[in-house]
Design a protein around this nucleic acid. Structure first.
Lengths: 256, 256
DNA sequence: CTTAATATGTACGTTTTCGCACGTATAAGA
DNA sequence: TCTTATACGTGCGAAAACGTACATATTAAG
């Protein structure tokens, strides 16, 4: 275990051409044409490699990130070095809530869990747009509430459910954010996310593979039977999905 | 275990005379005189008995509550009936975030953990005041962020720490919100909050009493040695306190 | 092709927590 | 005062997860 992805900084990050990439993030796509036009010039496409760190715990945030193909994990790191994931943001979310909530900082690390692209927006621009109210503010606040549900459910699930159930939940959440059935992810990294031992993940994953729900080889997990996973997962998964839909479904299409 | 406090509705709630009680909630007290004056007539003192339910999971919220002497617990209830606390709000917080975040509802139950008073404000009035921006909006959003930290830390603590450590944390958090060293609370209720067995709480509490940190008899726990508890608790407690201070310390005095 | 690094499998004793059962102690009501 | 309800103590065996150690399999590098 220990100190995964540490201090890799933004080395792998690349700033790419400005395009309409923003529209591939569902929250941005939800904005009315007028509001989107207002912020469009503030959007800057970037791309991330696995393990890139968007910010460290305590860092003053500079940007809000709207993932398009990347998946970002919000990780808490204990003094001991043990880690646990508290939330995930993909193309239906954003990273950097503290910027518009007023705190400027959070006590977690945002790390790239699946390489890909995002668009980012400078903190000042976010605050300006947020202060105007409108759909932008509404969407940001509703997303924040949905993230709270996600974190709450993580807390509950950590308390009450088995590692195998949590692994199912984690796989489904990630699958939701991806355009593919293949997750590039080792058992060891998953263990860091779930806050359990690497062996614990292997032991939980074994039966799932045995029942034909997933298949994995050396760092790649393939989702074979999504309905099967949905049948094996605890209620926590659906609660979060439903709450997201309730809060943002008016604006945002479902991924799956 | 199971279904504690269920469906007691607001039976024990009493609407009392309108006073300056609002100022005993730290978030309200933090408002500039002008902003407080603007909302003062919307504040309605209420008092709660142990076990009163402010709202059920899924209920459309009608008010935001600012506790003054009451302590409100945010509980998640599984389909199985198992419960787990995800957050606590006392006189340095508020209950009903979903009203200004846009969701109108949350997937948890708000239940009175310690009898006492609060002031409440109708949803419409909250939204109106929130939309004006100013310190009111700022404080509400910052509090929301601090609550996210609290929930996150609950998630992490549930994953990584022992029942005894979590009990210490729970005792300290509650002590912070109280004007007394006596907590009216049975092991069974604490077990519901922590999401563990009643026996688990007794087994964890035994050594704490043995070392003279607390004393308990039939439904009342007395904090004897707060520094001792602070020495026994995991880092999670302080992280939440510090983050609250960072976010709101500019406005709000420390309880202890 | 060989070697090194990484990923996963497996085993074993330990610790924590659970579920259940029952005993004891305190408080409240008849 | 006696009964009853409630709160807490205790003792099991079972299950889950842990820490540790080491084996095996796959990929990457030289």
């Amino acid at each position: 275990m220990l100190l995964i992805f540490q201090q890799q900084g933004e080395m792998g990050m690349t700033v790419t051409e400005n395009t309409d990439a923003g529209l591939r993030n569902h929250l941005l796509a939800a904005l009315p044409r007028k509001e989107f036009a207002r912020i469009e010039s503030d959007l800057e496409p970037v791309s991330f490699a696995l393990g890139d760190v968007l910010y460290e715990s305590g860092d003053k945030l500079t940007h809000v990130y709207f993932p398009t193909t990347a998946i970002i994990s919000l990780l808490y790191i204990m003094q001991s070095g043990a880690t646990a994931e508290i939330g995930i943001a993909g193309n239906n979310g954003l990273v950097g809530i503290a910027l518009f909530m007023g705190g400027e900082t959070t006590s977690n690390r945002a790390v790239v869990q699946s390489a890909g692209a995002a668009v980012r927006m400078k903190g000042g621009a976010v605050k300006t747009a947020f202060a105007l109210g409108g759909v932008f503010q509404n969407v940001l606040l509703r997303y924040t509430q949905s993230l709270m549900t996600q974190i709450s459910q993580t807390a509950v699930c950590n308390r009450l459910h088995s590692v195998e159930q949590q692994l199912c939940r984690w796989l489904l959440i990630n699958h939701d954010q991806l355009q593919t059935d293949k997750l590039v992810m080792t058992h060891d990294l998953i263990a860091n996310m779930l806050g359990v031992r690497r062996e614990g993940v292997s032991i939980a994953a074994g039966p799932l593979q045995g029942h034909g729900l997933i298949k994995y080889v050396r760092g790649t997990i393939t989702i074979l039977d999504r309905p099967g996973l949905e049948a094996a997962v605890c209620e926590c998964y659906q609660v979060v999905v439903d709450e997201y839909d309730r809060l943002l479904g008016e604006y945002v299409p479902r991924n799956r």
